[in-house]
């Protein structure tokens, strides 16, 4: 997927406060890109779920936040990477109600429903990468 990139920032996800910082940075970016309130809220909520996963299950990582402009359409693309143990069964992890931690098990599947583009790749022992995107 190639999209003209307007701006990129990289944020660490090492602490719970970093997860809050990611949410706030995504808020700023979606506002800059002219997203409506519901679209902002959906992307921030999805980002919050995935950032928390990177911290809780992946032992921390980083978030790349990108603003794009493609064919006159403005978008925000978020890439979350961790170097954790990886996910053995992605299909199972995507299922609502499945959790290996203390959550409700809505993280991955729920986040996918909140965005227009969702991509997850995970390699055992290497880490997990999740890409989320929404367009205005």
């Amino acid at each position: 997927m190639t999209m003209p990139l307007l701006k990129r920032e990289v944020l660490p996800i090492r602490t719970e406060t970093d997860v809050v910082m990611v949410r706030q940075a995504v808020r700023r970016l979606t506002i800059e890109q002219g997203f409506g309130l519901v679209d902002q809220t959906k992307l921030i909520t999805a980002a919050s779920e995935i950032a928390r996963n990177a911290l809780d299950y992946g032992g921390g990582g980083e978030a790349q936040l990108e603003s794009h402009l493609e064919g006159g359409k403005k978008g925000v693309r978020l890439i979350f990477e961790d170097k954790g143990p990886g996910i053995a069964d992605i299909a199972q992890a995507m299922t609502d109600g499945f959790t290996s931690g203390g959550g409700l098990g809505h993280g991955l599947g729920g986040a996918k429903r909140l965005v227009e583009h969702f991509e997850i790749t995970s390699t055992l022992g290497v880490g997990t990468r999740v890409v989320l995107a929404r367009w205005k």
Partner: peptide
């Protein structure tokens, strides 16, 4: 609860 939050919560599955 803000309406945008309510909409998002339901779509999230909660």
């Amino acid at each position: 609860m803000q309406p945008a939050v309510a909409i998002t919560l339901v779509e999230l599955g909660l």
